[in-house]
Design a binder for these strands. Sequence first.
DNA 1: TTGTAGGCGTTATCAA
DNA 2: TTGATAACGCCTACAA
Lengths: 354, 354
Amino acid sequence: MHMPKASRSTSVPVVTPRRRSSGQATLGDVAARAGVAPITVSRFIRDPRQVSDELRTRIETAVAELEYVPNRIAQGLAGSHSSAVVAIMPSLAHSVFAQTLHVLTQHLQQYGYQILLGNSGYSLAQEEDLLRTFLNWRPAALVLTGHNHTQGTAKLLAQLKVPVIETWDINARSPYFQVGFSHLHAGAAMADYLLDRGYRRVAYVHNCLVEDLRSAERGRGYSRALEKRGERPLIVEARGNTPFEAGGAALCALMRQKRRPDAIFFANDNIATGAVLEAQRQGWRVPDDIAIAGFGGFPIAEQLVPALTTLQPLHQQIGEIAAGIILQHYGQGHGDQMERRVDVGFEIARRESA
Amino acid sequence: MHMPKASRSTSVPVVTPRRRSSGQATLGDVAARAGVAPITVSRFIRDPRQVSDELRTRIETAVAELEYVPNRIAQGLAGSHSSAVVAIMPSLAHSVFAQTLHVLTQHLQQYGYQILLGNSGYSLAQEEDLLRTFLNWRPAALVLTGHNHTQGTAKLLAQLKVPVIETWDINARSPYFQVGFSHLHAGAAMADYLLDRGYRRVAYVHNCLVEDLRSAERGRGYSRALEKRGERPLIVEARGNTPFEAGGAALCALMRQKRRPDAIFFANDNIATGAVLEAQRQGWRVPDDIAIAGFGGFPIAEQLVPALTTLQPLHQQIGEIAAGIILQHYGQGHGDQMERRVDVGFEIARRESA
DNA sequence: TTGTAGGCGTTATCAA
DNA sequence: TTGATAACGCCTACAA
């Protein structure tokens, strides 16, 4: 038994060391119970093969009996990084980002990683702030959205030794992992599709999220495609309390113009849906009076009457691939691939509305 | 200058202690530079008023010069709690939870809290697992969904000394903070509304998420209301790849029954939307052939043709109120209220579909 | 394969 | 108000 040294010249017999702990079993507790040194348990936890069969059994028993769960905080402090994966999203109100996060969470959780969530509100400055804060958690990896960052962010990222993954966008010059697709190509592809279908006056309508650089990038792709075929681009901002309202309002505004478009490419399926429903209320026929196309491949698009033609990024896997990169970096999961740039691609879901 | 003690009787002159650190300035570095003890800097960081004016100035300078940023991991290990707030959600694929998280994040971020995100997939067992892991992070607060937990979860929660907030549901017996509304009442309210409108054969259709206890609770409310008025409840499960598909399929199935209902109450607006759109395809008139009501007050509901009657929980504030409780507990934010149970209530948005 | 010693960066406790 | 000391729970480096 452990006997605390007597305090100098006082007669106080035994002072129980007051513990600050949370009552959870620790590595030391397991070690004591199994009759081994703490470091052996530590090895067992990280890689059971490093421990002999006999000790392994004893430790396994002790772990089970004490319901021991490794303390990730302590691991993080002692090791070079924690088990936290930082994810910074521009918004969670958008279902696509929520979806990515959902999948990311699911995959990383089961391998013992935790998600530290940041919400940048489409602001690059906020992204940098969040990054500064999160780096103090010594994350095991970073998952960001897009490849546009402030200089400060770039500097911080450059010093990091853990994987950094940029999602949703692909850009040749980034030094980090990327999982996404080219929004420039996507915008051009939909514009080409509409032109090929015979529409000539094609407008592009996006939400007024100033900092959503990806929808702006699609707009650039759209513009280039139109100009290449001798048509004049028309980019309009939609405003409203909800994306549905915004889409409906934008449609009405465009239909009132003297030189009204014959097709509209919306920056996402929600505003496109708003437009389809507004057309229904107004009695405009889609696609005869006005063709409507969306972006995102949201589930609602397929159910609308008429069903919405949309550009569907194959983004379901973005979260999954991002998780895979992290797991593989740390030697977990199934080592499928490890390319620095994964283009998940997109396809045009050709339906009735355009 | 600091001189390391000579190792016992060896002639090795000076062994530079190898640092494993990441090169970041530590509390000790700041203390050395300011000529004070580390603990004094620690106090300064947590509450500058605890330090005399003179030392405060010196420490401030040192912090600035070294660009010192506290290590959250170490704080978490040594302190009674960290600056992380754990949020465990049943899913992020559902926009309502994503929304709550979105707001929670926004509010807590600006006060220096970080969100540790868990995804329980509607499983109480998983919730317990996540909780065990997350408790090692010594969170400053916990935000959970619902008041149903495993025994293990309950035991863990009972030991905690930080605020625990259950969201989305209200139940008188819980000892924790609660922010939400009564799903039992909500279900009954919509059933009563439909009965009051003259519908007699009212069915309830919910998604087949076995563990979504809240939609089941609304179903119970619906059943009670019907029985109280002498009608027979009919509860049906909707199945499909997407909620929209599921709603459409459920509608078709019900319309084919010999004793077909004259009104359907859907467990959420997405499946209700699927039903409205399916009715449109099938040529069934809503509400004349079949009345349709939803739950959730999703933005799409208002835009549909016909617009969807829905029960709208006033849930926008759930995340905000939860954040407020946490901030107030730690003496931050604006001290509005601090009731243990906040009923955000709901209202029936009466529209064309029922 | 197993163990010892010391450190990771901070805060709690107690004493001055 | 300030400081010395010992946690917090684990991991790295090195030795046996």
